[in-house]
Design a protein around this nucleic acid. Structure first.
Length: 195
DNA sequence: TATTGGATCGCC
DNA sequence: GCGATCCAATAG
């Protein structure tokens, strides 16, 4: 038996900013056969509601953004710049588009395999960015929409971060006043943050 | 049907 | 600082 317990759906049903903050320190896990690839979440960003111009959902329900309008606790994964995948967890009630982007991890399990996949030599380069962590953990488009409560991809309890910092979101220069929202959260002092 | 540009990354 | 690389979202 595993003894590993995915966070309950009620966790993802909470306010998105609360989820984004609470995710710092939790463990993101991908089970591959008998082994696990995982890392502690050290950086997140919240994308909240239909009016947030930084969010893909600000243009309404489309084929791509459909998971953001779905029930909480599912994955929203999309291809960015034709090359990388970004992984989000869907939050809040169905039909209210909101999600939290996972931006960086501190590698935990499967480090040797993740170093190979990323073609890097140091642990801090494995998952210090949203496109890097999906490559390291083997998260692809096939997993878009997966239920994080019942699938081989989930988030479980981890550790308590000493201090959580907050700042503006990255890469959303096009979002007008919404780019100023301090909706990025991170573990202060971590060596595994993006950029 | 054609054009545009992006919640990034790694190298110049 | 810039090009890679592809596809969803728009415009026509």
């Amino acid at each position: 038996m595993s003894g590993r317990a995915p966070l309950p759906r009620s966790f993802y049903l909470q306010d998105t900013l609360e989820v984004a903050r609470s995710l710092i320190g939790k463990l993101l896990v991908h089970r591959v056969g008998e082994s696990y690839l995982s890392g502690f979440i050290v950086e997140t960003e919240a994308y909240v509601g239909p009016d947030d111009r930084a969010s893909h959902a600000s243009r309404g329900l489309t084929k791509r953004t459909a998971p953001m309008f779905g029930p909480p606790g599912h994955a929203y994964i999309y291809l960015i710049y034709g090359m990388y995948y970004c992984f989000n967890v869907v939050t809040e009630r169905e039909n209210y588009p909101a999600a939290v982007l996972i931006r960086a991890l501190e590698p935990f399990e499967g480090i040797e395999l993740m170093l190979e996949r990323r073609k890097v030599k140091s642990r801090r380069e494995i998952a210090n960015g949203p496109g890097k962590l999906t490559l390291a953990l083997g998260i692809t488009r096939e997993m878009n929409g997966w239920d994080l409560c019942t699938s081989d991809l989930w988030i479980e309890e981890g550790r308590s971060p000493e201090k959580i910092g907050q700042g503006t979101r990255i890469g959303v220069h096009y979002a007008g006043e919404w780019k100023e929202k301090p909706w990025r959260f991170f573990e202060v002092g971590s060596e595994y943050l993006s950029r």
